[in-house]
Simulated assay, not measured.
Amino acid sequence: MTKSALKGRRILVVEDEYMLADELRTQLSDAGAVVLGPVPSVEQAIALIRQLDKIDWAILDINLGGEFAYPVADLLMDRNTPFVFSTGYVDAALPPRFADIPRCEKPINVDAVAQALG
């Protein structure tokens, strides 16, 4: 799966580092995706998810300003929304319930996201 698979997809971006979020937004938009967000916090992500009827995929930073994004991941799982965790940590210790969730190392490569979610 390549960037062409992103065309028209509604992708939620949850990332607290402005430069990374902006770069990811630009890359996804250039690939034809509809970018939802980016949002920088657990609270804002949950609020946005609850407002939206449709999210095709999500990219979720594990650590949002020192707060783990697991409540956001749980909500996405409850809604059957595929997502990837993005992280700068090589060996992120995830709770067992997230063992099958794909991880993409930062900086995020849009092709890797498309492949992980495909």
Rank of each mutant, 00 (worst) to 15 (best):
V84D: 08
A99K: 07
I62Q: 07
Y70E: 12
D53M: 04
A58S: 12
M77N: 13
D53T: 04
L76Q: 07
D61I: 03
N80L: 15
T87Q: 05
A69F: 01
P95S: 10
M77W: 05
A73R: 00
A73Q: 02
L52Y: 04
A93N: 14
F83V: 08
I62S: 11
I55N: 03
T87M: 12
G66T: 02
L76A: 11
A69Q: 02
A93T: 08
P96M: 10
L76E: 15
F85Y: 11
P82I: 02
S86W: 01
G66Q: 07
F83K: 00
I59L: 10
N80G: 07
G65V: 05
L76M: 12
D91W: 05
R79Q: 11
P71D: 14
E67Y: 03
P102L: 12
A92S: 13
G66P: 04
D100K: 06
V72G: 02
W57Y: 14
G66C: 12
D78N: 04
W57P: 05
I59W: 04
Q51Y: 06
Q51R: 15
V84I: 12
D100L: 08
N80M: 09
I59V: 15
T87E: 04
I101Q: 13
N80I: 05
F83E: 09
D100H: 08
L60Q: 09
M77K: 11
Y70L: 12
T81F: 02
D74M: 08
L64S: 02
G65F: 06
A58E: 01
L94F: 10
S86N: 03
A73T: 00
D100V: 00
L75G: 05
P71Y: 13
A73K: 01
L94M: 15
L64W: 03
L94S: 09
D53C: 00
E67P: 00
D56H: 12
R97E: 15
R79V: 05
R79F: 10
F98H: 09
P82K: 08
G88H: 10
L60G: 13
P102G: 11
W57E: 06
V72K: 01
Y89L: 12
A99W: 04
D56M: 06
I101N: 10
S86P: 00
P95C: 08
S86H: 01
N80T: 05
L76S: 09
A58G: 03
D61M: 03
L60D: 14
D61C: 03
N63A: 10
L64G: 01
D53F: 06
A69Y: 01
A93P: 00
L94I: 02
R97M: 10
E67D: 13
D56R: 04
L60W: 11
L76I: 11
I59R: 02
P96W: 13
